[in-house]
Design a protein around this nucleic acid. Structure first.
Length: 423
RNA sequence: GGAGAGAUGGCCGAGUGGUCUAAGGCGCACGCCUGCUAAGCGUGUGUACCCCAAAAGGGUACCGAGGGUUCAAAUCCCUCUCUCUCCGCCA
């Protein structure tokens, strides 16, 4: 959520920066609703002030035994006026809130302006795509031939966009999770968390998935719970409605969770394989920082994610998303794209964003800089460290051998009971 | 699932219809006193929103959440959420 004062004081600047996202926003609607809301609020508050004053007088009269029935009749009329004025005010406030909650974040001023992913800026590359003396296969063929992935039976028990990991495949997925967690908690200074995979509406409003993107989520009927689309949601919301101690910042969390996405509207995209599943595993990093450090912390977070790929010796590139390609809540985003020989292209495997105050405002996460000072909003950051299923894909495709087997990256062998190859 | 108890400010805790403008304490900030990291004394100490060009100032709301009764609700009634105790069930 943006600071409404910024919209009022410098709407021209906000319009201009928001336009770089390519978002169509009805600013006239905002101006009208904001005006309406303040007028209605002011008039209701004047009536309430009158009611409070009269009630106080009635109390005094009654105490001294004087008849107060005239004043009571007058107060009743004021109360009636308040009741009739409150219905439209509630409606206006709902419209105002909906506008504010569906407005995306402002891109950071130094983010490149662009329309789509084609305008993204490549920041750096690491590693060389492997050369094969045979035609490299897709991961789903490798996985099915090795009998470590079973899409067909997953479809039988669940449906499309699910998979069953089998045997060494299941163990490889688990090895990746443990490897990533150990790296982030051991050397990168994150605290390991294991949050619920179900959250309430308030949490999803806090991080920005609701109210605008409900159709992307799985909703559970009894209890009004949602399956998390990313651990960013529970981790960031841990400190909702809290005022944090300055000394506690930066807070750095890492968590492995399954993630659930409806993928409504992505029919026909990545229909085969592990790339786009309804349920997938992810190790997620979340930071809460002071505003002045947040961009340094973003750089550090990207390096933390890169380190996973480097230790696995998987070639990748770092891309800075342009204004038109960034997600709803992000002020700036770096994507890590891993090389996939089976698709002969780089594919997203991590996304690291600084949301600045956007989520902190929604979730009301603040800190106090000085003992006397007003509470300020923290900056929130999140990044994959990494998407486990896609890392599994990258291992299979980059480490595949001519005979269809897959070498286990050295860094993972301790997590695989010393296994060096899946064949 | 059944029975019961509870939820008040940064924290503890009092408060059963009208100066609650929420007592008292702790903590914190500022000041005073005191020749030594103590003790004491005084003052202050929430959040959000609205009015005002701004400041000063004023107003509204907030005692778990929502609704109701009433001229008036922390206080009475209803619903819900969460916490705790006991029972049942369960991994």
């Amino acid at each position: 959520m943006l600071d409404v004062k910024l919209l009022r004081d410098d709407l021209a600047q906000v319009k201009e920066r928001m336009a770089t996202r390519g978002a169509a926003i009805d600013w006239d609607e905002f101006v009208a609703v904001d005006r309406e809301r303040r007028d209605a609020l002011a008039s209701i508050e004047r009536l309430k002030e009158k009611k409070n004053r009269l009630s106080g007088e009635i109390g005094k009269l009654k105490k001294s035994g004087v008849d107060a029935s005239a004043l009571m009749r007058e107060t009743e009329e004021v109360s009636e006026a308040i009741r009739t004025g409150e219905a439209p005010l509630t409606e206006i406030e709902a419209r105002f809130e909906n506008f504010m909650l569906t407005l995306p974040n402002l891109p950071s001023p130094n983010v490149k302006i662009g329309k789509s992913e084609h305008d993204n800026r490549e920041v750096r590359r690491w590693g060389e795509p492997p050369k094969f003396d045979f035609e490299p296969q897709n991961h789903w063929d490798i996985g099915e031939n090795l009998a470590i992935l079973d899409f067909e039976r997953a479809a039988k028990i669940a449906g499309a966009r699910f998979t069953v990991y089998r045997g060494a495949g299941a163990r490889l997925e688990r090895a990746l999770i443990n490897f990533m967690l150990d790296l982030h908690i051991g050397e990168n200074g994150y605290q390991e968390m294991l949050p619920p995979a179900l959250v309430n509406r308030a949490a999803l409003v806090g991080t920005g998935q609701l109210p605008k993107f409900e159709e992307d989520l799985f909703h559970l009927a009894p209890g009004d719970y949602f399956l998390i689309p990313t651990a960013e949601v529970p981790l960031t919301n841990l400190h909702r409605d809290e005022i944090l101690e300055l000394e506690s910042l930066p807070i750095k969390y890492v968590a492995y969770t399954p993630c659930f996405r409806s993928e409504a509207g992505s029919y026909g995209k990545d229909v085969r394989g592990l790339i786009r599943q309804h349920q997938f595993n992810k190790v997620e990093m979340v930071k809460l920082t002071e505003p002045e450090n947040s961009y340094d912390e973003l750089e550090a977070m990207v390096r933390n994610a890169e380190e996973v790929l480097q230790r696995l010796k998987l070639p990748y590139r770092v891309v800075e998303l342009c204004t038109g390609d960034m997600g709803f809540g992000a002020a700036m985003t770096y994507d890590l794209e891993v090389w996939l020989p089976g698709q002969n292209t780089y594919r997203e495997i991590s996304s690291c964003s600084n949301c600045e105050e956007f989520q902190a405002r929604r979730a009301n996460i603040r800190y106090r800089k000085e003992n006397k000072g007003k509470p300020l909003f923290v900056h929130t950051l999140n990044g994959s460290g990494l998407a486990v299923g896609r890392t599994f894909v990258a291992v299979l495709e980059n480490y595949q051998q001519k005979d269809g087997s897959v070498i286990i990256p050295e860094a993972l062998r301790p997590y695989m009971g010393g296994l060096t190859q899946i064949s």
